[in-house]
């Protein structure tokens, strides 16, 4: 019972990732693409959680934490680039 539920949830997550990939390729503006990338990262984290329930292992937990950190930093870097045209400033107060 629970395994078929997990498989259905995985299928919907894959559909969601495919929709985000469509937005990533087609997206008219760059902020759409950034949002789609962040959405794909969150969906991948959810899919890894479901897979680790499915396999009854805790070996993937650090992978989930690392993916969350990396997608967070990537989204912040893209937002900085869109807002100021420069990712890392050499002096903030100039």
């Amino acid at each position: 019972m629970i395994e078929s539920l997990l498989i259905v949830a995985l299928c919907f997550l894959v559909l969601s990732i495919l929709a985000a990939v469509y937005r990533l390729i087609k997206g008219p503006s760059i902020p759409d693409r950034v949002q789609a990338l962040d959405n794909i990262g969150v969906n991948i984290i959810a899919a890894i959680a479901i897979i680790s329930i499915f396999m009854r292992t805790s070996a993937f937990f650090s992978v989930m934490l690392l993916l969350g950190i990396l997608s967070f930093i990537g989204t912040i870097a893209f937002a900085r680039f869109l807002e100021r045209g420069k990712v890392i400033e050499s002096d903030r107060n100039e």
Partner: peptide, 13 residues
């Protein structure tokens, strides 16, 4: 990655 986040939020100097 942590140092990169600090660089993004604050500045290099």
């Amino acid at each position: 990655a942590a140092l990169t986040l600090l660089f993004l939020t604050y500045d290099i100097n």
